[in-house]
C-alpha cells in the first residue's frame, strides 16, 4: 500500500533527517515506528502526507508517486489519511462536536451528513456524552480522542499517529492504544510513531526501529528496543 523507495531527506546545512529508507507497508497493517527523539519518525510520517518531500527516492501510495500529485489534488490525498499528534491541535473555540464536524465541513459535506456521521464517530471514540464540551473542559486523553475522531471523519484508509500518547498518563495512553487497535481492526492501516515501550510490546505487531534517519530493524511482532 505504501512504499518508501530509497528515501532520503537532507535539510540545508547537510542535516540528514532520513537516509536511504526502504519500507513496504501492507494494507491493514499496524506498524509501530520507534526511535529516539529526532531519529526521523515524524519526518517519515510527514512524507506520507506530503508535508515534506524526499530529497532522494520516492514515496508511493498504491503505486502512485505522491510527489507527482498536483497541489490541487493534494487535499484529496490528505482526506484519505487521518493524522493525530502529541500536541493534539484542536480548535479551542469549538466544541468537541464542532472540532470533528470541522473536518467534514472543509470537505464540503452537507449539514445533515455531518450531524449524523459526527455523532457516530464520537460514539465510536467514547465521547458521545461530551459532544458539547470545549477542549478546555476535557482531559488530555479525551482531547486526544476528539483528535482521533476528527482524523476519522473522512473515513481514512490510512491512520498516522505521531506520539499520540506522549502527554498522557498510562491509563489514558492505554485507552488511546486500544482505540488505535480498534481502528486497525476495522480495516484501516495504522502507523504509530511512539516512545511507549510497554504498550508497543503488549500489542505484538510489526515494529520498525529508526536511528539517525535509518531503518535499523524491522520485525513482525517485534518489540521496542533501542
Amino acid at each position: 500500500m505504501i512504499k518508501f523507495d530509497g528515501v532520503s531527506k537532507i535539510y540545508p546545512k547537510n542535516i540528514i533527517a532520513l537516509e536511504n529508507v526502504n519500507l513496504d507497508i501492507k494494507q491493514g497493517e499496524f506498524i509501530s515506528l520507534v526511535g529516539r527523539s529526532g531519529a526521523g519518525k515524524s519526518t517519515l510520517l510527514r512524507m506520507i502526507t506530503r508535508e515534506e518531500s524526499p530529497s532522494e527516492g520516492g514515496v508511493y501510495i498504491e503505486d502512485i508517486d505522491i510527489s507527482r500529485i498536483s497541489s490541487k489534488d493534494l487535499p484529496y490525498l490528505r482526506r484519505k489519511i487521518g493524522v493525530v499528534f502529541q500536541d493534539i491541535k484542536l480548535i479551542t473555540s469549538r466544541t468537541a462536536f464542532e472540532n470533528v464536524a470541522y473536518a467534514m465541513e472543509v470537505g464540503g459535506s452537507p449539514v445533515e451528513e455531518i450531524e449524523k456521521d459526527v455523532s457516530l464517530i464520537l460514539d465510536l471514540v467514547g465521547l458521545a456524552e461530551k459532544r458539547d464540551a470545549f477542549p478546555s473542559e476535557l482531559s488530555g486523553g479525551e482531547k486526544q480522542r476528539v483528535a482521533i475522531a476528527r482524523a476519522l471523519a473522512h473515513r481514512p484508509v490510512l491512520f498516522l499517529a505521531d506520539e499520540p500518547t506522549g502527554n498522557l498518563d498510562q491509563p489514558n495512553a492505554m485507552e488511546i492504544f486500544s482505540l488505535l487497535k480498534k481502528i486497525n481492526e476495522m480495516g484501516t492501516t495504522v502507523i504509530l510513531a511512539t516512545h511507549a515501550k510497554t504498550l508497543v510490546d503488549k500489542i505484538k505487531k510489526r515494529v520498525v526501529v529508526i536511528e539517525r534517519g535509518q531503518v535499523v530493524s524491522d520485525q513482525e511482532q517485534g518489540k521496542y528496543k533501542l
Binding site: E51, K72, P75, R78, K80, Y102, V106, G107, A151, H154
Partner: peptide, 11 residues
C-alpha cells in the same frame, strides 16, 4: 488543521 483534514487550496 485545515491542511491536515484535507481542505482544498481555495478553502
Amino acid at each position: 488543521i485545515m491542511r491536515l483534514v484535507g481542505a482544498s487550496n481555495s478553502y
